[in-house]
């Protein structure tokens, strides 16, 4: 069983232009990620709650309505309130340069401008989405190795004969 990068792709605000969000969602899937798509017109509260419950590494928001200066800060605040600051927030859409700077200063991890190739978004997420390690229960490596070696030797010997 493998760990998968999980990403929530959300469309907060009122605009219905989900072309970008869907194209990105499909590209992330094709890059092997598990994408939770929340649908249109989501409130910031429901996006953050979904991100927490789905335990995603990244929240990706597409905002084309011009409400980015309202929505991003609210998302960040709600994440802090849910003790989920480690969930990264990235975004795409039409965001003027000075707003972009402001948003990155308050903790938005990355903003992608219009026309960004999806491969760039995929790569960024792959490079940056790392979760803290969780406790595992695997048997000690040394034990496993020993058993492996033993068996391999025996099979070899036999097949030669």
């Amino acid at each position: 069983m493998i760990s998968k990068i999980r990403v929530l792709v959300g469309k907060p605000g009122l605009d219905g232009h989900d072309r970008g969000a869907k194209v990105v969602a499909a590209a992330l899937r094709d890059a092997g990620m598990e994408v939770i798509y929340t649908g249109l017109h989501q409130t910031c509260e429901s996006i953050v709650e979904a991100a927490v419950q789905e335990d995603v590494h990244v929240i990706g928001l597409s905002i084309l309505s011009g409400a980015h200066m309202t929505i991003f800060p609210r998302i960040l605040k709600l994440l802090r309130a849910s003790k989920a600051k480690d969930i990264m927030v990235i975004g795409g859409g039409i965001i003027p340069a000075d707003d972009m700077k402001k948003l990155q200063r308050i903790g938005v991890h990355k903003l992608f401008g219009p026309g960004t190739p999806t491969s760039e978004i995929v790569d960024w997420i792959k490079d940056n989405a790392v979760k803290p390690k969780r406790p595992t229960t695997r048997k000690k490596k040394s034990v496993r190795k020993k058993v492996k070696k033993q068996v391999r030797k025996k099979i070899k010997k036999k097949s030669k004969g």
Partner: peptide, 22 residues
């Protein structure tokens, strides 16, 4: 603007941040 397109008034909670924007 978006709130109007969705039949919502400017004082609707959904309208926050979107009034007169687009």
């Amino acid at each position: 603007d978006f709130p109007t397109l969705y039949g919502r008034d400017s004082d609707d909670s959904f309208a926050h941040g979107e009034v007169g924007k687009c």
